[in-house]
Design a protein around this nucleic acid. Structure first.
Lengths: 229, 229
DNA sequence: GTCTATAGTCGGATAGAC
DNA sequence: GTCTATCCGACTATAGAC
């Protein structure tokens, strides 16, 4: 009895470990070249589990893909970015926010965003997974769009509406939010292209600062020139 | 004799058509979800040729992929963008270009670029093919980087060096060129994301104008504030 | 609950018929 | 020069042993 219970418990633990390692391996496999290019065999090999584990825990390959997307959406948290977003959400409810204060919050968000996106010790495969899905929507597009993109873009658009003194649902606010993020995102999305043109090997140290300062200035100019007086 | 010659000629013609239709089908197949997801069978079906045609004309699947990249790099020409680039290349050699004139050339390029990228009647699958390769470099990365990206980015960086009065090899010029393009590219790369946030179905008519005007202003502000006096 | 053996399908590439 | 038949390996999913 005791022995059987202990065995079961150890089995459940192993089961949880198998789930985890499959999701971990799934992020890597799906991240590199997408859903089709990742074989279930390569995933179970990397995860150190047997082939039957995927259908058992996730029903099928698509189920694992879905679980990977859920995992990324849930665990993609960066302390500085999250803190900046929380501050923005709190203060945009306060309608007495001045344009200058809003711009300051904007810079806090962008500075955190740039540092996270450009320094390479961050989970690069998570990014690839997300960007691929956003470029070519499939079954998990909504998960990532709602819980990763909107979470960041909507507060940003709200800030811009304060700065420009325009209604929150004015498309101009959203267009500006996306285009400003585009300035940063391009260095992550086509990273190799930008590094090659610059003859750089990485965005580190002074180089990261250079990019950060330029983008900071461009965000500032774009919004300040249009700010309510 | 005559008959055999005519048959051979017709055969060569058919051969050329097979090549063309395979490349056409390849753009579509590789464009949608990448190299791995495209099966040679689906490609030959779409092209209306037999399975042996791929190894015969292109050696193997990779050879077809390479040919598709070559075709895109060669035939991706937009009259207005090309004209703008040609003007820039001509005038940046003239060192007496004023900052104001350079900024004007910059706007010509960006306006053409935005119209082409955002209006959906342009070959969307070509874009997907290019972006996927730039994000995840494989064997044809250099072809696309040299003949599509550098062709546009380098003249743009040269213009910026005139506007800011900095040396052409100052990394600041390249960083600014990429980030300004990023403002536009994001609307093409994660098109569905931006459209969904805006509750738009397409970038057409007034909506295209709205985006174009905002980006025009942002490019203007970013550079004008830093222009040599 | 976990793993292995295998079914059934589809992939790219080839050899040889026409 | 063009097409067909076929090989062989790899894939996902399942069934049943342990």
């Amino acid at each position: 009895m005791v022995r059987s219970k202990s065995l079961q418990s150890s089995g459940q633990q192993r089961g949880e470990e198998a789930r985890k390692s499959l999701i971990e391996a799934g992020i890597e496999a799906f991240g590199v070249n997408g859903y089709e290019a990742a074989s279930t065999r390569s995933i179970v090999d990397k995860a150190g589990v047997n082939l039957g584990a995927i259908p058992y825990y996730f029903k099928n390959k698509k189920g694992l893909y879905h679980a990977v997307a859920e995992h990324i959406a849930t665990h993609l948290d960066d302390p500085e970015i999250d803190a900046a977003i929380a501050r923005i959400n709190r203060k945009t409810k306060n309608s007495s926010l001045s344009a200058e204060q809003a711009l300051e919050l904007m810079h806090e968000l962008f500075d955190a965003f740039m540092t996270t996106l450009l320094s390479s010790d961050r989970p690069e495969l998570w990014m690839k997974f997300i960007f691929r899905e956003l470029m070519e929507p499939s079954s998990v597009f909504d998960i990532l769009n709602e819980r990763v993109v909107r979470k960041t873009i909507d507060p940003c658009a709200a800030l811009i509406s304060k700065i420009l003194d325009k209604p929150i649902d004015d498309p101009e606010c959203t267009v500006r939010a996306f285009s400003l993020f585009g300035q940063v995102l391009i260095f992550r999305m086509v990273r190799q292209v930008t590094l090659k043109s610059l003859s750089w090997e990485d965005f580190d140290g002074d180089r990261l600062d250079l990019v950060r300062n330029i983008l900071h200035q461009q965000v500032d100019d774009a919004l300040r020139s249009q700010a309510k007086s």
